[in-house]
Design a binder for these strands. Structure first.
Length: 290
DNA sequence: CTTGTGTCCTGTAGGC
DNA sequence: TGCCTACAGGACACAA
């Protein structure tokens, strides 16, 4: 669920309540959520205990984000800093609650913090992960983080960058936009929205897209992600994305195509259609997009 | 290297 | 009401 605008909103709203706090311990209800350390894979017998041991006493210095990864920079005294890397995948949610709060529905991990607050990782589908790693020594399970492409909100993300990455390729443009090594942080919602803004159908082959269209697409990706951040992310009716204080985002009101199949296009009134690319649904306006 | 497909895991919505 | 199936914002392994 959470794409770049959602994770960035979470980062911004989490920062004031987490920065400077000390981690006093962790409660792990679902060990599958721990992506690193893994039992048996790093000379550790019990990864769960190892995570608790390594994290306890660390202080949260800074919150960062790369693509859809949220990164908590930790330190303990003058020992080398560790990173707590969190990926929310489809249904993950991070909430800050008073430590006295009882166990929440779908609560998988709780980090107990100083100041009687806790950071709770809610994850109904158990696909999300947390990783405790050393900076500059990322485990193989985090190669996705290592291989991220430029973010569309980065100053150097432009038509030339995008064309270099995909223009020679025969795959559908939509599938390539979901590739994190090409455009970090873009997911199903914002790729559909960007293609609408650029007037390009999701099924178009990357090599058939013109220079002018790549210009529009690069700008559309940038603007749609910036707008998503400005409106604090997209909370669909049945969806789980929530900000850390449990409030919803507001970008859903502005969606032009995502989750709007069979509804009229807000620009021309044509019925929004959907198609399938790989295993994922894509929506587009057959008149506004060519 | 590229592309398309299946899988992970669980909850929920909708059909019958 | 109850059972069953299809589907869900992501990422990765794998086969061709």
């Amino acid at each position: 669920m959470p794409e770049l605008p959602e994770v960035e909103t979470i980062r911004r709203e989490l920062a004031p309540s987490l920065t400077g706090r000390k981690i006093l311990g962790a409660r792990i209800s679902r060990p599958d959520i721990v992506g690193w350390p893994r039992s048996g894979e790093c000379g550790v017998r019990n990864a769960e205990c190892e995570l608790k041991r390594l994290i306890t006493g660390q202080r949260i210095r800074q919150l960062e984000r790369r693509g859809k990864y949220l990164i908590l920079r930790l330190s303990r005294g003058d020992s080398p800093g560790r990173l707590l890397v969190i990926h929310l995948r489809l249904s993950g949610q991070l909430l800050v609650v008073p430590t006295s709060t009882g166990k929440l529905r779908f609560e998988r991990i709780r980090f107990l913090l100083s100041g009687r607050r806790s950071l709770v990782f809610i994850e109904p589908r158990v696909l999300g992960r947390v990783y405790l790693v050393e900076e500059g020594n990322l485990p193989p399970v985090l190669k996705g983080l290592q291989n991220l492409g430029l973010e569309p909100i980065h100053p150097r993300f432009n038509a030339r960058y995008l064309q270099n990455k995909v223009q020679h390729r025969s795959a559908r443009i939509k599938a390539l936009l979901l590739d994190q090594g090409i455009a970090a942080g873009v997911g199903n919602i914002y790729s559909d929205e960007a293609l609408f803004r650029a007037g390009i159908r999701p099924l178009r082959r990357a090599r058939r897209i013109t220079n002018q269209e790549y210009g529009r697409l690069a700008r559309a990706l940038r603007s749609v992600l910036q707008d998503g951040i400005r409106h604090m992310g997209t909370t669909m009716a049945d969806a789980r994305y929530r900000r850390p204080d449990n409030r919803p985002g507001e970008f859903q009101k502005r969606l032009m195509v995502f989750d709007r199949e069979d509804s009229p296009c807000k620009v021309c009134g044509t019925t929004i259609r959907s198609c399938r690319i790989g295993n994922r649904k894509s929506r587009y306006c057959p008149k506004c997009q060519t």
